[in-house]
Amino acid sequence: MKKYFMVVIALLASSLVAAKTPIIEITIKDHLFYPSELVIPADKKVKLLVINADETAEEFESYELNREKIITGNSKSIIFIGPLPAGRYPFFGEFYPKTAQGVIIAQ
């Protein structure tokens, strides 16, 4: 029991150390992601600035990234991603998944 708590506390403590993180912008327009392909550095945390230029809300979702966030119409929001090992991480807009599709490439 105690051991588990130690691990949790260690993880919590390390997480509070904030570092300067690069910001990457992505725009939702007409239920499409621009750009639909994002290249980010591998093993490094990035700040994803999602701008929703549509009237309607969209939900940024990715099973591979474990991310899920509603971005209301005409607003912006921030999602932290990574550090990710090199690879392809598809994401999509849950409300319009047929058109709003994209992929994050960590390299």
């Binding site: 904030a18 945390k45 474990n66 990710l84 090992p85």
Partner: peptide
């Protein structure tokens, strides 16, 4: 996701 906790692989 909110970077309150540090992400690990």
């Amino acid at each position: 996701q909110a970077d309150v906790l540090h992400s690990y692989p």
